[in-house]
């Protein structure tokens, strides 16, 4: 069963088509990677899926419901979360507070004025458990801006997990990571695979081919092929698109 479906998605910026008649179907529970040369419109696609940008035409369905015109916070509440290609955290809050806020957003009303958020065990414990899971537990009380890039990338994942989202849109989680950190991220994603439906945008081809159940290839805003890793690897059109870029 497909959890996410786009039909005929279009988005232009000043005459340039960033998304061009894009039709995509993501199955429940799969890790669906989206690859493509630079400028193919991958991040533009993510922003439309999570609602920060509205498509010019076309529809997006999530679990059979039309969410094309829904605001980002409403989509988040339906169960879509994203991580950002350029790390997007709350720099002046501690690591724990960042995760706790995501937990709190998921677990109940935030219109609570009396009790200190830090003193609520349910939130704190779950946030700590998530930090444990991404290997950042001992950094919990440190201000976020003080962490390294790699640690920020892992925080992004923890926040995505905190939302208990059914659909996670991960925008280049490995961007800028060293080999060791990349390996840890692949381990983490392997662990998450199967528990969540994941749309993964990634440039690291080794990681993509190791992780993905299915791969879609995006070129000039249009999906030219979708299939399992083996069939994508054998696809002539895909090869041409990539060779074309290198030439």
């Amino acid at each position: 069963m497909s959890i996410l479906e786009t039909k005929g998605l279009m988005k232009s910026f000043g005459g340039i088509r960033a998304t061009d008649d894009l039709t995509l179907s993501v199955e429940q529970g799969e890790l669906h990677a989206i690859i493509g040369p630079n400028g193919a419109g991958k991040t533009t696609l993510i922003t439309q899926l999570c609602g920060t940008q509205m498509p010019d035409a076309g529809t997006i369905h999530f679990k059979g419901r039309d969410i094309t015109a829904l605001a980002p916070d409403k989509r988040a509440r339906l169960g879509i979360t994203r991580s950002f290609q350029i790390t997007s955290l709350i720099p002046d809050m501690t690591v724990l507070e960042n995760i706790a806020l995501a937990v709190q957003a998921r677990e109940g009303s935030s219109y609570r004025f009396i009790r200190a958020a830090a003193g609520i065990p349910a939130i704190r414990d779950r946030a700590m458990a998530l930090l444990e899971r991404v290997g950042l537990a001992e950094k919990a009380e440190i201000e976020t801006r003080a962490l390294s890039h790699g640690e920020h990338r892992h925080m992004e994942i923890a926040i995505a997990l905190a939302s208990r989202a059914e659909l996670m849109l991960l925008d280049e989680p490995m961007a800028g990571l060293g080999p060791e950190e990349s390996a840890r991220m692949v381990d983490l994603l392997t662990e998450l695979k199967g528990q969540h439906t994941i749309v993964l945008i990634e440039h690291d081809m080794d990681a993509v081919f190791a992780l993905a159940d299915r791969i879609s290839v995006l070129v000039y805003g249009h999906i030219i092929a979708t299939g399992d890793p083996a069939s994508i690897r054998a696809n002539k059109e895909v090869e041409a698109a990539y060779l074309g870029e290198e030439a």
Partner: peptide
């Protein structure tokens, strides 16, 4: 406070 630091992120959390 979260929205002060990063409003887009807070919105992505569903708030």
């Amino acid at each position: 406070r979260g929205a002060k630091g990063n409003a887009e992120r807070v919105q992505m959390m569903g708030l």
